[in-house]
């Protein structure tokens, strides 16, 4: 092998560094798909249908064909953004704005509620000494691996008609949960997400809370603080990093979910469909709106990408702390 320091030798070493090339190869292959979506979302219907995204480099066009209302077409910028202008309008056929709000209405409560509930439970498992703590905790975490599919249909039936229990050997039926008519609305999705998030959230937060130093909690107890104030004043503020990690994880998960939405909202009006369902419906409907799919998919991915890139460190931390989520 050459070990010299001349320009040619250095260039040779760079070029013959096969592992490095392999890595950049993977990176390029992994980036091209997202890039093509991004580029195509600015191109007109005709261009998207006729040429590949790479031709945008030399085959630039002004986007005149999407059908954006005249008043938006004030300057050149809006011509390029015409797909987005249609997608973000309130157009029933292709507008995404409604579904962006629906997605927020699902993702925000589905992030906040599980965090609160799981924090309580994680604290109890970590610091309150009660009988049966360990088996209960292991049972909770074991539920991590239950596939959603197993629980979905009975859940939907519960949201459709409440929960009833027929007492064995009698004809008597007790109403345990009345029919709140939740199916077809965002709260059905939120409650489902809350239930499914529970094992992972408890596992993650418990891992963190139980790693807090014993002396800290003990000294608070000696000072006369009960569990409630220890939790509120000490453990909760100290757990912010773990909570943030889970919050990001859960927000991405709920924003990107399609399965639960499609099952729980099937009976609802299109107004309540989240972005994923909207995109999936657009994708299933070839023809007039196909060119808007790219802009729509980018709008769908925009919020998680912002969250992801600005809070990547915490997201990674959440993954590391609890990489058993199914």
């Amino acid at each position: 092998m050459r070990n010299g320091n001349s320009v040619i030798d250095r260039a040779y070493r760079k070029l013959s560094n096969v592992p490095m090339w392999a890595m950049w190869g993977i990176v390029v292959i992994w980036t091209i798909p997202s890039l093509s979506l991004f580029v195509n979302s600015f191109r007109s219907r005709t261009r998207q249908r006729q040429t590949g995204f790479w031709e945008a480099l030399w085959d630039n066009d002004r986007n005149f064909e999407a059908g954006c209302p005249e008043e938006y077409l004030r300057d050149d910028l809006f011509h390029v953004l015409e797909n987005y202008c249609v997608v973000l309008s309130n157009d029933q056929a292709s507008g995404m704005l409604t579904s962006v709000i629906s997605s927020l209405a699902i993702a925000v409560p589905s992030t906040i509620i599980p965090i609160a509930i799981a924090c309580f439970a994680a604290y109890a498992f970590a610091w309150i000494d009660f009988k049966g703590r360990k088996p209960l905790f292991i049972a909770t975490v074991a539920l991590l691996s239950i596939p959603l599919q197993v629980a979905l249909i009975p859940l939907l039936r519960m949201y459709l008609g409440g929960a009833h229990f027929t007492v064995p050997f009698t004809e008597r039926t007790l109403t345990l949960i009345p029919d709140f008519d939740l199916a077809g609305g965002p709260w059905a999705v939120v409650l489902t997400h809350t239930g499914f998030a529970m094992p992972f959230a408890i596992f993650l937060l418990h891992n963190y809370m139980s790693s807090l130093p014993d002396e800290l909690i003990e000294s608070a107890r000696v000072d006369g603080a009960d569990h409630f104030s220890t939790f509120m004043r000490l453990v909760l503020p100290l757990s912010v990093p773990a909570i943030a990690a889970f919050a990001i994880f859960q927000f991405l998960w709920t924003w990107n979910d399609y399965l639960i939405a499609v099952i729980m909202l099937n009976s609802g009006t299109p107004e309540v469909f989240p972005t994923t369902q909207r995109i999936a419906n657009l994708a299933g409907d070839f023809g007039r709106t196909e060119h808007l799919l790219t802009a729509g998919a980018f709008v769908q991915a925009f919020v998680p990408l912002v969250v992801f890139f600005s809070l990547q460190r915490y997201f990674v931390r959440g993954l590391l702390a609890g990489s058993v989520k199914g």
Binding site: W30, T31, I32, P33, S34, S36, L37, N40, Q48, R49, Q50, T51, G52, F53, W54, L252, W255, N256, D257, Y258, T276, I279, A280, A283, L293, T294, A297, Q300, A301, P304, L305, V307, F308, F309
Partner: peptide
């Protein structure tokens, strides 16, 4: 980055990559 993209979004993205065009047209999928 793809971790942040939904599976629905990813399927739409890869539909662009896999898209076939018939013989007379230019290919739009990479």
């Amino acid at each position: 980055m793809p971790m942040a993209i939904s599976m629905v979004g990813a399927s739409v993205i890869w539909r662009l990559q896999y898209a076939p065009k018939n013989t007379s047209q230019k290919q739009t999928g990479v």
